[in-house]
């Protein structure tokens, strides 16, 4: 059907051009290393910060009330503004106060913006997981003499985190793509490189190539998680309903 559309030939020429693909691919791959780097250093920071936020928000200690209010405010503000806007504001704003190298790097502050926004989303995922562990688990742990923090660490969090792995992966796949937004404040990563190639040759194929490169990371990432989860389920449970 598609080849019979009247302008298909021209679309194929500008989006699926084999020669342009072969030419751009190595350059894009090289630029993609930067995406992977940003992803690799942002992810641990996001997970750690999100966990701290979620635990603070789930705490029941009345003395921590001001901290809970602060965390709720932080999450609301971070989630309520588009990621791209935070990247502009933090990435251009913070170095603007006159920081010296290397602390004025847009790469650094772009990553900080990603960490700040994504930790707010991921904190809510963790919190949902913590809330989903039944109160009776807490009762059992506390009745054995475990402290509040021991209960959280050994009983609540391990169950909570297992449950939220799928939505967590969802956010990480999302992050893997949003890393490209950092290019808007300077660094040349894959999306920017594709844009450069597109302009140079007036051809959109580099964008398609970039899409393929993104997929080659995100799909295996998701499948591996599914596999790990299934293995864990087989290990701890007796029977499966078909």
């Amino acid at each position: 059907m598609i080849p019979r559309l009247p302008r298909w030939d021209r679309v194929r020429e500008s989006f699926f051009n084999g020669e342009r693909l072969r030419d751009s691919f190595p350059r894009l791959l090289e630029a993609f290393v930067l995406d992977i780097k940003i992803f690799a250093w942002s992810t641990p920071a996001i997970l750690a910060l999100a966990l701290v936020l979620a635990i603070a928000r789930s705490s029941r200690n009345p003395a921590l009330f001001p901290i809970r209010i602060f965390v709720i405010g932080y999450i609301d503000v971070m989630r309520g503004v588009p990621v791209i806007l935070w990247i502009y504001l933090i990435g251009f704003g913070v170095p603007g106060v006159g920081l010296e190298r290397p602390f004025n790097s847009p790469l650094l502050w772009g990553s900080v913006a990603l960490v700040m926004t994504y930790s707010a989303y991921v904190a809510e995922v963790f919190r949902a997981g913590i809330d989903s562990v039944h109160e009776s688990q807490r009762a059992a742990a506390r009745s054995l003499g475990l402290s509040n923090s021991q209960t959280m660490r050994f009983v609540i969090l391990p169950q909570a985190i297992r449950r939220v792995v799928p939505p967590l992966m969802n956010d990480l796949v999302s992050l893997q793509k949003d890393v490209a937004l950092v290019s808007l404040i300077g660094p040349i990563e894959i999306l920017r490189q594709a844009g450069i190639d597109k302009s140079k040759f007036a051809n959109f194929t580099p964008y398609v190539a970039a899409a393929i490169i993104f997929l080659s990371i995100t799909i295996p990432l998701t499948r591996t998680t599914d596999h790990l989860l299934a293995r864990e389920r087989r290990r701890t449970s007796a029977t499966r309903v078909r």
Partner: peptide
């Protein structure tokens, strides 16, 4: 502090409440 007291008192629940993980 309830923790030292709870160490001396065991409780078994209707719904077992074992840690599933």
């Amino acid at each position: 502090d309830p923790n030292p007291i709870r160490r001396r008192i065991g409780i078994v629940f209707q719904s077992f409440n074992l840690f599933p993980h």
